[in-house]
Structure formats: structure tokens, C-alpha cells
């Protein structure tokens, strides 16, 4: 098994657009955008690929902070950004194709938007049919 190192570069939200533009100009392909809960903050990771090596840009933002969309640079970002906006409730401004919260319609709004709930060891009570 070959393990390739994956580099993470921490950014401030203000630098995001500039760095993504640099990646685009250097010929990187947008692979994915993911979002994680990290304490009280959210952690967004933008992954790029060039020559089969992954590199990541990472920003940390407090909840309810709007971040700019990168879909003007990479159109492909619109699916991931809509998904993050729907699942985490992070407002993303200026998405190229903005579904305005209807991309993934869920029973409860922003299911990932709450901190992790671990029911330690307990099985959830019977919700029988």
C-alpha cells in the first residue's frame, strides 16, 4: 500500500478566494469540499488534486458566519456548497446555481448543524412500526 502525504494549509476566511484562484491558475482540480464540526466552530476543507496528489485548504469559522462561494472560480463547487448550506446551515454567499436550501431537503433543518450527539452505549429506544 502506498501512502501519500496529504498537506493541509490553514487559511483565514478572507484569504480563501485568493488562494482558490491561485490553485485554479496552477491547474489544480477541485475534488471536494467537506465540513466538520470542531468544538463550537466549523471547519471547511477544500481539497484539490494535481497529479494524483491531494492538497487541502482549511478554514475555521464560527457558526452563522457567511463565507464567500468559490463557484465563480470552480463551477463544480455549487453542489458541495449547496450541500453544506443545507446540511450545516452555513450561509454561503454568491453560489453560481443557488438552490436556496432546497438542494437536499431534510426532515429536520440542518441536521449536521448541531454538535455531536453520542448516546454512549445505549441503544435508542424502540420506535416500532
Amino acid at each position: 500500500m502506498i501512502k501519500k502525504a496529504q498537506s493541509f494549509q490553514a487559511l483565514s476566511p478572507a484569504e480563501l478566494i485568493q488562494s482558490v484562484q491561485t490553485c485554479h491558475d496552477e491547474g489544480y482540480r477541485l475534488v471536494q469540499i467537506s465540513c466538520t464540526h470542531d468544538g463550537d466552530n466549523y471547519e471547511l476543507t477544500y481539497s484539490f488534486d494535481r497529479d494524483l496528489a491531494l492538497s487541502h485548504l482549511r478554514i475555521r469559522i464560527p457558526p452563522e458566519t457567511a463565507i464567500p462561494s468559490i463557484s465563480r472560480i470552480y463551477l463544480a463547487a455549487f453542489v458541495y456548497e449547496n450541500e453544506i448550506a443545507d446540511l450545516f446551515g452555513i450561509p454561503i454567499t454568491g453560489i453560481a446555481i443557488d438552490y436556496k436550501g432546497t438542494f437536499i431537503r431534510t426532515k429536520i433543518p440542518h441536521p449536521f448543524g448541531s454538535p455531536q450527539v453520542v448516546k454512549a452505549g445505549s441503544k435508542t429506544e424502540e420506535r416500532d412500526e
Binding site: T106, K107, I108, P111, T124, R127, E129
Partner: peptide
């Protein structure tokens, strides 16, 4: 039949009989 392994997912209401 019953929701299966996804029974506890936030977006699943359960089996078809619901």
C-alpha cells in the same frame, strides 16, 4: 419492511407501512 440499518437516520421515517 422496517427502515433497516437506516432506521435511526434523521431523514428516514421508517418502513413503507408508515
Amino acid at each position: 419492511c422496517s427502515g433497516g440499518v437506516f432506521r435511526e437516520c434523521y431523514n428516514i421515517s421508517g418502513g413503507v407501512n408508515t
